[in-house]
Design a protein around this nucleic acid. Structure first.
Lengths: 204, 204
DNA sequence: ATTTATTTTAATCATTTGATTAAAATTTTT
DNA sequence: AAAAATTTTAATCAAATGATTAAAATAAAT
């Protein structure tokens, strides 16, 4: 067999789409089965339960959102300015491919934080001794901004980059913006966000 | 009777807390009833259905998030700099009181966008001819930034202000930050965000 | 070709969950 | 105080939903 995807993969892919769209609680296994073009029993045959299937989808979603970024943030061979450029653009790349990803994760962490305490492979000291934080730190000292918690700037990069995707449904309702215009808006931010961040920290 | 709140109000308040925490799909009417200290039948007696109760909670939540801001954004008597200060601080005030509000609304709009098309009383031209957008627009012209869509800056204010609340559960899991530290982090941003925005648009 | 293992289905179960109903308790009106 | 209206409860229902089971279909191994 092995036509396009294996049945197992087809189920997981359908589950990913629907879980990311509707969340765990809002998803019915019947809908996943239908989207995958299979019988409901097959879902349980391959994945045992809704919870187990969800856990797999979530694990892969977390990896998609965090895995690549980690290495870039920790790369000692690139400077701060370049890092900011790369991270913003990589995030926009990832999220353009997978626009529901951030809201999905934020929602499910809120719904069930305990589930993530083990699952997130980043230890709690993750951010403190990362190359990018140290680079921001030493730069802030140079320009006399050492009283500001460097985490604010990390946070600004992430928030300004991610928010269009998180707020997309609301924006569409409130402003009536269409998909193409939104895509352009997001792409404009590939250059704008790094420039803004560098202005904030007086790095030009 | 009329002890503290009427039964009707007690139900709605319990519903607000649980709906905002777990979303529509993740909430069981039984849990609302239990939290309100009443029988499940009472919930249906007063509100007819889960959907109707939810609609009321959502309507009030939307008002809480948008109502006050509208007037400030449209106030012709305040300048741009002052508006930015007021909006950031008001938003942080509102969200500090009601931290689950933004993620709740973002989630439910995503889950059911049609429901909001009528409900959001802001017409689609809302943002275009608002005082603040015109003020940003004319300022951008003055400083030679008229090629940048002014909506980017609105968006930056909102994203940088709201994001700590949206990402709170994730931050707690990832960084292990506690409530007090998070509160301080957010309060630091009352001054920082307006300063950053003004730097971005060269308004000092 | 036959047997064995794997994959898929149809039918059904058991639990959860939103809603209802009829009666009891309470409050308000007369 | 009696009658009427309102509020609350206990018990139950019906639909939705995740899961299972036993059999059928298909593929792999001998």
């Amino acid at each position: 067999m092995e036509n396009d995807l294996s049945t197992e993969e087809k189920i997981k892919e359908a589950a990913r789409v629907i879980f990311q769209q509707k969340g765990f609680a809002g998803t019915r296994t019947r809908d996943i089965a239908e989207a995958a073009g299979i019988n409901m029993a097959l879902l349980n045959y391959y994945y045992r339960s809704k919870e187990k299937l969800f856990a797999i989808v979530m694990e892969e979603s977390l990896r998609e959102l965090f895995y690549q970024i980690q290495f870039i943030a920790n790369d000692e061979s690139t400077g701060l300015s370049e890092k900011i450029d790369i991270i913003v653009n990589l995030y926009i790349d990832i999220l353009s491919e997978n626009p529901n990803l951030p809201l999905f994760i934020l929602r499910e962490v809120q719904a069930n934080p305990e589930l993530f305490k083990q699952k997130i492979g980043i230890h709690q000291t993750f951010l403190k001794d990362t190359a990018i934080v140290q680079q921001i730190d030493s730069h802030l000292k140079q320009v006399g901004l050492s009283h500001v918690n460097p985490f604010h700037y990390i946070f600004n990069v992430v928030s300004m980059t991610i928010f269009p995707f998180v707020a997309k449904p609301l924006m569409k309702v409130v402003t009536g913006i269409n998909d193409d215009a939104l895509k352009q808006f997001v792409n404009e931010r590939r250059l704008l966000i790094p420039a803004w961040i560098k202005t904030m920290i007086q790095l030009q």
